[in-house]
C-alpha cells in the first residue's frame, strides 16, 4: 500500500494504454513516455504493461506502507527518500514508512514511478490508464488527491537485485530544444508548398497549452491552398470533412498554432492534419515543457521504421543489462 501525502501537480496511473478503441472514439491514453514506462517496469521485474504513476512537473509525496522495490525513470525531477537524494534508472529498495518526495524539475517534464507488482486499479477495457476527460481508468478516473491509498498488484515477474542500474549511455537526456521527427502526410495537400517548408523550418515554441491531450505551438502562420469548399468540410480553409486523428498527428486550426495530438486527444474532427510524429519520438514529446523549442524534422517511412528498430534494440540491451546482474 502506498499513501498519498501530497498529490503533486498531476499524478495519474498509466500503463501501455487502452488500444484498439478508436472506432468508438476512445483515445489510447497510457504513459506519455512509453520508453520510461517500459524501462521502469524492467528495473523492478514487472510485466511490461504493469501500471505506474506518471508524475508531471511537480512530484507528489508518498509514504510506502510495506517493504518493496521501486524505480524512477523519465524526466529529471530529482527524487528523494526520507529527504535524501536517490538515483533514477536504478532498482531501489524501500522500507515500510519511507517517504518519497521530489525536488523541482531539472529537465524533461514527466517522471515515472514503477512499483514491484504494478499499481493495482481495476482494468477498464483492458487498461489501467487514467482517462480523465470522461473519468475512467486509473484511480477512480482522476489524478491522485491527498489521502488516496494505492494498492499494488501481482504483475511482478522476476526479482531484480536492489542497486541494479542501467548503463549511462542508454539513458535518454532532455535539453530545452527538441528535434521531433515526423512523417509529412495525411491532409498535407491542404498546405501551400511554402507553408510546408515553413512548417519544417520554423523553431516552434511550446505554449502553456501543453498536456496529455496535446501540445500547442507558437511560431509562424501557415497558409492553405485555395479551394472551393467541398460539401461537408466546413468553411475555414483548415477544415476538412471530419476524419480520424492518429495519435501524434499535427493539425493547424485556422493556420495559427500547430497542435500535436497526444494520448488523451480527441479521436477525430474537422481540421486538416498535416504530419504525424513517429512512434519513437512520441516519448520525447512527452518530456517537453512549456516554453521549450521544437523543430519538426521530416523523415520517410523506412527511416521511421529504422528508428523504431533502434529503439527496440536499446530496450533489448537494457533487458540484457538487467538480466546479467
Amino acid at each position: 500500500m502506498i499513501k498519498v501525502l501530497k498529490p503533486g501537480l498531476q499524478t495519474t496511473v498509466q500503463d501501455q494504454g487502452r488500444l484498439g478503441l478508436y472506432e468508438i472514439g476512445m483515445p489510447p491514453s497510457g504513459a506519455m513516455d512509453q520508453f520510461a514506462l517500459r524501462v521502469g517496469n524492467m528495473i523492478v521485474g514487472n510485466h511490461p504493461n504493469a501500471a505506474v504513476l506518471e508524475i508531471t512537473y511537480i512530484g507528489p509525496e508518498l509514504i510506502f506502507e510495506k517493504d518493496t522495490q521501486i524505480s524512477l525513470t523519465g524526466g529529471l525531477i530529482p527524487p528523494k527518500i526520507n529527504g535524501v537524494p536517490v538515483p533514477m534508472w536504478e532498482t531501489l529498495a524501500v522500507k515500510a514508512g519511507d517517504v518519497l518526495s521530489f525536488d523541482f524539475v531539472k529537465s524533461g517534464a514527466r517522471i515515472y514511478l514503477a512499483v514491484e507488482g504494478g499499481i493495482d486499479v481495476p482494468l477498464v477495457m483492458n487498461s489501467r490508464s487514467t482517462y480523465t476527460l470522461i473519468g475512467i481508468g486509473g484511480f477512480e478516473g482522476r489524478a491522485l488527491a491527498e489521502g488516496d491509498v494505492l494498492a499494488t498488484g501481482d504483475l511482478h515477474e522476476r526479482k531484480v537485485a536492489a542497486g541494479t542500474r542501467i548503463e549511462e549511455s542508454l539513458i535518454p537526456t532532455f535539453g530545452r530544444s527538441h528535434e521531433i521527427r515526423v512523417i509529412v502526410g495525411l491532409c498535407s495537400y491542404r498546405l501551400t508548398e511554402e507553408s510546408k517548408r515553413i512548417f519544417l523550418e520554423t523553431e516552434w515554441t511550446v505554449t502553456p497549452e501543453a498536456n496529455r491531450i496535446g501540445y500547442r505551438h507558437k511560431g509562424q502562420r501557415l497558409q492553405f491552398v485555395e479551394r472551393e469548399q467541398p460539401f461537408g468540410a466546413g468553411s475555414n480553409p483548415s477544415n476538412v470533412t471530419d476524419l480520424g486523428y492518429p495519435i501524434g498527428s499535427i493539425q493547424v486550426p485556422d493556420g495559427v498554432e500547430p497542435i500535436v495530438l497526444l494520448h488523451d486527444a480527441v479521436t477525430g474532427g474537422g481540421y486538416a492534419t498535416v504530419a504525424t510524429v513517429i512512434s519513437t519520438d512520441l516519448n520525447r514529446m512527452g518530456q517537453i515543457k512549456t516554453n521549450e523549442k521544437v523543430k519538426f524534422v521530416s523523415v520517410g517511412l523506412e527511416e521511421a521504421l529504422q528508428i523504431r528498430k533502434e529503439n527496440q534494440l536499446v530496450l533489448n540491451k537494457i533487458a540484457e543489462n538487467i538480466a546479467s546482474r
Partner: peptide, 21 residues
C-alpha cells in the same frame, strides 16, 4: 482515393474530400 502514412503506425485513406453517402 488518397493513401497516406500517419507516422509509422497509421495508414490514413481519404476516399473523398467532400461528404456523400
Amino acid at each position: 482515393t488518397r493513401y497516406e502514412y500517419g507516422g509509422d503506425e497509421f495508414v490514413f485513406v481519404q476516399l473523398s474530400e467532400a461528404m456523400s453517402l
